[in-house]
Amino acid sequence: MDIAEKMNVFQDAVQVDPRVVAQEHMMTGENLYIPEKTVGAPFVDDPKMRMRDVNVFYGADQAIHGVSLDIGKNEVVALIGPSGCGKSTFLRCMNRMNDTIDICRVEGSLHLENQDIYDPKLDVVELRARVGMVFQKPNPFPKSIYDNVAYGPRIHGLANRKTDLDEIVENSLRKAGLWDEVKDRLNSSALALSGGQQQRLCIARALSTQPDVLLMDEPTGSIDPIATAKVEDLLQELSETGTIVIVTHNMQQAARISHRTAFMYLGEAMEFGDTNQIFTTPRHPRTESYITGRYG
């Protein structure tokens, strides 16, 4: 995407002029309270990933403003917010996918356990083996189902013999809930699967390197409701043994599957707390406006 497109995405975020919101509040007589720090409990003890004062720039334009939060172990964190608020941009910082965009610049400190992710001595390839990613639109490789899942382990040298590789493939497919449906046609093309199946294949593929953290960017955004339900079940199972950060537009989904939820707006983390609390008693007025549907 070039800078113009990025600017458009960014500008889409401002669907409602803050002044209009302020005026609305004034008309109803409420006091408008805009705190400066992230409301709630953005930090935890012994986090899996620790992010402090993260700023992201696309050229001269700032997309993420001073976000600081922790991702805990074995929990599902949902990132919600209106279009273009920076959720995906922030997510992509965590596995340095933003490196692929030339004009993108990331500042701040991000740590995976004790390792500084942006340490120049760290090989980004190694990072991505530990932090996996699933994208919004299913993007299986134009290869067989087996080769799709086997790709990660192959390039990272995680399996020396064919039997080891077979085992990894089977485990990953089972975890993704796809094994029973494809075990008889592992060598057929991945592109012949349905949309939902392809996305589960992508999840299996991401799981094949047994990552510490799984990043998911609106994973059910383009698949049918039945497949969505299957994926959500899957995520619940996975969260028992791994850390997942999921960006979603679907508030009900966030409410269903995440332990904690962060609400982002215009590149800032407005509120971060327990999912139940966020959706029943949000503390930040903007969070409340978003959840009640005043803007999307």
């Binding site: 596995n95 996918m97 692929t100 390839v125 190694e126 990072l127 991505r128 083996a129 996996g132 990613m133 994208f135 639109k137 993007n139 299986p140 490789f141 134009p142 790709y151 990660g152 390039i155 990272h156 992508c202 593929r205 991401a206 390197t209």
Partner: peptide, 27 residues
């Protein structure tokens, strides 16, 4: 070649060279 394939490969930890040789060129 669609960028989604590149992103998927890079997300798995393929190096630039691997992405080019194993995905971009064959496609």
């Amino acid at each position: 070649v669609p960028p989604s394939i590149r992103q998927a490969a890079m997300g798995l930890g393929a190096s630039k060279m691997q992405v080019v040789l194993q995905f971009v060129l064959p496609l």
